[in-house]
Amino acid sequence: MIELRDVAFAYEDAPAFTLAHLDLDVAAGTIMGIVGASGSGKTTLAKIIAGFIPSTEGGTYRGTASVAGAVLSEGTLTEAVDVVGLVTQNPFNQISGARFTVREELAFGLENRSVERSQMIERVDAVADTLGLTALLDRSPYALSGGQMQLVAIASMVVMAPPVLVLDEPTSQLDPAGTRLVYDVLARLSEGGTTVVIIEHKTELLHEHCDAISVLASGRIVSTGTPATVFADDRLSTWGVGQTRITQAAREARARGLLPVTALLPVGVSDGAAVFAENGAAR
């Protein structure tokens, strides 16, 4: 679905390339998690996948990025946004400012795509329901808390039902319950065939929900694979990515000879429980 081939990008006047020699493949209907330290180029990558770079950003762009078979840099931005929905980092700046209620805010993108009114009402109600926003529909978007704004920003893109959804740290202001809600929605979308790319620091959640993980370090993809293999990789912290406490504990147990060296390091609670229970922890 998403194919990046030898992509490189340097911002105007920047001394170095933010991304270089970047290859990335995301299969249709899967969830890909992108992890990496601050400044590794994650946001730039998101903008490339969504077609905003190079079309709205000056600088040096090389390589090809294609989504659903179309090379983004050869088409218009409108064509790109019909295929890829982008949720950016700061929820405050995703409020259109042109609409006075959350309901109208959610409908904004559909209006721009000339969706018929009856269908619009149906879709707005449905997305508000899945993201728990129904009670807020008549409020002003500016009267929301940061977490609520973040949910509205996600909903306003989900409602447009793009085949590909790219989210840049979408849960930074959400509590664990709100974060789970977002991941549940993404899981459902992916079951329905949507391809999802999510940039995130929360390793445990990515492990639970992603089909694949790519690690970005200094503008290059340094590792790609299943969450279980990528997150158990010993080099993870050298790339500035955190291992879960369970992985850290299992590593230490292995070093202390308490777990067999052959055991794959667990990442989450259920695989952690399996590994430790198998080796005599349960009581």
């Binding site: 969504a50 905003f52 409108t78 982008l86 950016t88 904004f108 993108g109 721009n112």
Partner: peptide, 8 residues
């Protein structure tokens, strides 16, 4: 950017 992403 956010507006263009919503096809404004």
């Amino acid at each position: 950017t956010a507006m263009e992403a919503r096809a404004f």
